[in-house]
Design a binder for these strands. Sequence first.
RNA 1: GUCCCUAUCGUCUAGAGGCCUAGGACAAUACCCUUUCACGGUAUGAACCGGGGUUCGAAUCCCCGUGGGGACGCCA
Length: 375
Amino acid sequence: MLAAGTAYRCYCSPEELDRMREDQRARGEKPRYDGRWRPEPGKDLPEPPAGVAPAIRFRNPREGVVAWDDLVKGRIEIANGELDDLVIARGDGTPTYNFCVVVDDRDMGITHVIRGDDHVNNTPRQINILAALGARVPLYAHLSMILGDDGTKLSKRHGAVSVMQYDEDGYLPDAVINYLARLGWSHGDEEIFSRAQLVEWFDLDHITASAAQFNTEKLNWLNAHYLKHADDEVLGAEIVRRLGAQGVSTADGPPPARAAALCKDRVGNLNELADAVHAFYVVPHAAPELKAQHLTDGSLAALRDLRGRLAACDWTREALNKAIKETVAAAGVKMPQVAIPLRVVLLGQPQSPSIDAVLEVLGRDRVLGRLDAAL
RNA sequence: GUCCCUAUCGUCUAGAGGCCUAGGACAAUACCCUUUCACGGUAUGAACCGGGGUUCGAAUCCCCGUGGGGACGCCA
């Protein structure tokens, strides 16, 4: 490029360039290289200072416009007069980003450049360099940015910067992919689609041109949906992993997959799922207020009655349900008056999935053991 | 400051000049279901940023304004 005259050496020092930009800003101008080392016909260049390793600058055309038909934003035109001569190689000879990508795209025969909005301004420079190299110009598609929940730029404060954060927060990969894909792209009214459907449907024609705002509530909804339809074994493994991270072993409890099946359609994420099944693996301690409220003389009497029935009961959900209903009838109370104290005793909390299903999954030994400890 | 991009319910979006009395989803509200808490089901409210054009006809095309975003490095 030096030989062809499409690039030239620039001996400006960083301090000199800083001063140049400061002055320009002070005058309300767009900061840019002023071309003092750019060779022109009939122009006298300064004498190269001794001992300075020059940077190489691209000699950007001064006249005309650069234009391309962006696959997302349509035609974009930028006057060459707006572009300055960018450095393509540093004083130490290493190439800069805008030069690297151009050379790499050319060598690899890249046909489509799909990237963030923030690169729109680099595109005309890259097209000019490509032209100087005699290379074919690829197609460009510039995707708009994603803003945080509060409508401002995404940052560390929003917590959505690293994909690993989603894992930590209990999101399923399919939910994250589905949500992110739908944010800024659409396929009619489709809201829920598998990765295979995404691959089949995805196209550049239905990408939104404007910036989208991240909506955690909708992600949560999608995640809950994927959780309901997820494989029990996969969820079981997540329970083992997440409980294990808290130092809780699942070895002495019911199979994690069964616990997952019981709770997966009532939680929003994997951490909540782990919390929901926690009491299956660790003997719970109900809060004193809960005990005072629910473990009255009457309810404890009913539980004693139930304990007797359960001891002789087939351990199936149907039989367990029948036993509970018999206790309810015998005590002359309503279902919640037995079910809730039972939950407090077995799980340490007043809410749970259907109590008969909980008994079934918890298992006879653990149920009777916890009842005996409370009675 | 200069240049570039952008603008439909609170949010994500459908919408390619008449199919729009603007559709779907999240969220909200109400009701239903119910063995608690959830899940789920049904229904309701909610938008074309403003102003000018073009056209028989504009959410859709053009211009201006305003709002939002991005870029102005020997960073990537």
